[in-house]
Design a binder for these strands. Sequence first.
DNA 1: AGTCTGACGGGAT
DNA 2: TATCCCGCCAGAC
Length: 104
Amino acid sequence: MQTSADIRHQAILNTIAQIPYGKVSTYGHIAALAGYPGNARYVGRLLKELPNNTKIPWHRVLNSTGRSSFPVGSEKQLEQFQRLQEEQVMILNGRIQLATYKQE
DNA sequence: AGTCTGACGGGAT
DNA sequence: TATCCCGCCAGAC
């Protein structure tokens, strides 16, 4: 059966899966869109558990300041920036302009 | 049940 | 714009 946690999990991943190519979103925004305002931390928790071969566009998820939530210079951060740049998303001083790229 | 942790957020300074 | 600080919430012990 589906527990409330399973349903929340599905709702959040579905929401992330819908972020368009070339666009980005934030943890808090995703939580709210999925129907769980205030659960930004939970969004990050789920992404952390995704397998390396996932098709979920985790790289399009940024924190509210428009920055990657990975440590500066880490492999994960570099991979995230690389993927975003492949989608024509500009990164200035380690930061993405949410006003320009944020999903509506 | 109490405490700690974290891919977070927002307001104050 | 950058720091600090505190609130938030599910999970792991």
